[in-house]
Each structure stands twice: as C-alpha cells, then as structure tokens.
Nucleic acid binder design. Structure first.
Lengths: 153, 153
DNA sequence: CTCATCTCAGGGCGACTGAGATAT
DNA sequence: CATATCTCAGTCTCCCTGAGATGA
C-alpha cells in the first residue's frame, strides 16, 4: 500500500552521485531510444557510424573504419555485410594492398545517411528534452573531453 | 604508410556531435573501468547497487530493490542469490506478506559496501581524469537532469 | 478473478577474444 | 621472420520477455 505521499521510490544517493552510474544509466536510455528509432527504419547504430565515416573520409578499409568508429573488427565485418546486402556500400579488394578491402559509399548509401540523420536528430531532442541549451552544451563538451582524454590513454 | 602527419584517425564529425553517441561511448569506457575494478575484488556493478540501496533504505523487498536501482526483476533474483551466497545479505520471507522476500544487509555486507566505495572512488577519478572540477559538476548535473526527466516519461 | 511478487528459462545485442588464411 | 588485414566462431555481460507458481 506504500506511503501516502512523498516517496516515489527514489534512487540510492550513492548511485546518484557516481558519475559512471549516471553515464551508464543514461546510455541505457539513449541506447533504447536510438535502437527503437533506427530499428523502425531497419537500421542499427553501427550502420550509421560506418556510413558517417565513409561520407566524411571517402573510401576506407575495414580496419580503418573500425578504428575511426571504435567498432571491433568482427563487428565491422558483420555490419559491412549488412550494408553491402542493402546496396548502401560496396566492398572491393584493394589492388595496391590485397590484404584489405576498400569500402565505398554508394549513392543509395548517401541518401540513406541523410534519412538516418533526420531520424537521429529527432531522437536527440527526445533524449535531451528536459535540458537547457547550456546543459546540452556542457554535456557534449564534458563527454568530448572525457573521450579525448581516455582515448589518449 | 599513411600521411606524414596530422591524421591520428579522428572520429567522424557526425558522431562527435551526437549526444547519444558520446554517452554510449563514454558508457563503454566507464563500464570497462568499473567492471575491471570491481571484478578484481570479486564484485559486479549490480552488487554495489543493491548494497547501496539496502544501506540507505534498510530491509527491502526484491521488487522494490529492482525499482530503486533500475535493475530487472530477473537480474535482481540472480544478484541476490550471489550476495546471499557471499553472506553480504540475508533473504527472508515477509511474514506479513508472504509473496515477497525481505532482503537484509548483514554486518559483513556493510563492510563490503565500504570496501567497494573505495574501489569506486578510485575508478571515478580515473574516468574523469582529464576533466576540470567545473566539467565534472556540469556532467553530473546534466546527466542527473536527463535521468530525472526521462524517468518521469 | 485480478493483481503483485518471486523465480526460471531463454532471446538479443553489443563488446570482445582466439584462431586461421592471406598478403606485406 | 614479424606484422597487418579479413573472416568466422564463439564467449560474456547486460537488458529484457514470457510464463508459471504463489499469495494478497
């Protein structure tokens, strides 16, 4: 029967004050929102990441794609397979270095990226709905620093 | 052979400017750091969460623990099993409501929580190493708002 | 009958590891 | 020889669902 009022199952103070917990909880929410939004159009997070990299940097090997997007080599293989099947990218062996595959964005893939841009813009607004402009900027700035610093070990 | 200079595999702009991507990337790093630190002393993230809730709110049913810590009912069962086995909590049927189990923190469990507090404090410093005090406060504040707003739908 | 709770079994995804084949 | 790439197979953790049993 609970209390009459004033105890809407708050979270433990320890967790609320632990940055790593705040980050992973937020990530779970972000993950769900993005997954649902992309899933509704038949895409996944990794699809968007690879298409973004190809659009910005041009044809790229799979290993390089993995480095740029922080995606594991195994997952790059699987994701490229999916994107090839959907005709959004093409895979070709590099004649100058036959170890590697060069992945190229198709015109279809460019359009796809633009579509996903719109889907994601909506999702970001949903995710940050309660935050002021200042809070949004602070968040992006702080997490950017965190990633920069951590990636340089 | 790459360029002579100035191209240390940067990330795509689109990703760097997408809050959900920044959050999930940071979460992956946080997850790894916390997992390794807790794993080194035989603990898991869920262990710390449940112990925190029990310390702050006293004996609690499993369903309530799940609500307070945002842990799924199935995972609460598994985690309580582990904590019972390690003698950090005790499980007893509520005589007033025989549907539910009341979980109680043992003296051992209290000590364990203090130990984990120290482990986690170190980890938070590692995680936020490159950030100024202002950035850290901004981050905690922004993510707190995000979680508050999202949890109220 | 309905609702809440506890429990188990298992699916799905993301992050990751190991090993083999091939080429530099 | 060592190194780098691509690929497959498979593990592990977390998040979540479904369903059954019990009791309010």
């Amino acid at each position: 029967m609970n209390q009459v009022q004033g105890d809407p199952t708050p979270q433990p103070e320890r967790l609320r004050q632990t940055p790593s917990w705040l980050i992973t909880q937020s990530a779970t929410i972000a993950h769900r929102l993005v997954g649902e939004a992309l899933g509704a159009v038949g895409a996944k997070r990794y699809h968007y990441a690879l298409l973004s990299a190809l659009e910005q940097f041009g044809p790229t090997s799979q290993a390089e794609l993995g480095r740029r997007c922080s995606i594991d080599r195994s997952d790059v293989v699987a994701t490229v397979n999916e994107l090839v099947e959907q005709k959004y990218v093409e895979r070709a062996q590099d004649p100058g270095n036959r170890r590697q595959n060069i992945i190229t964005l198709t015109r279809n893939g460019s359009c796809r990226l633009n579509d996903l841009d719109r889907v994601l813009a909506d999702t970001q607004n949903q995710l940050l709905d309660g935050l002021s402009e200042t809070q949004r900027n602070n968040l992006v700035e702080a997490l950017g620093s965190l990633l920069d610093h951590q990636s340089s070990h």
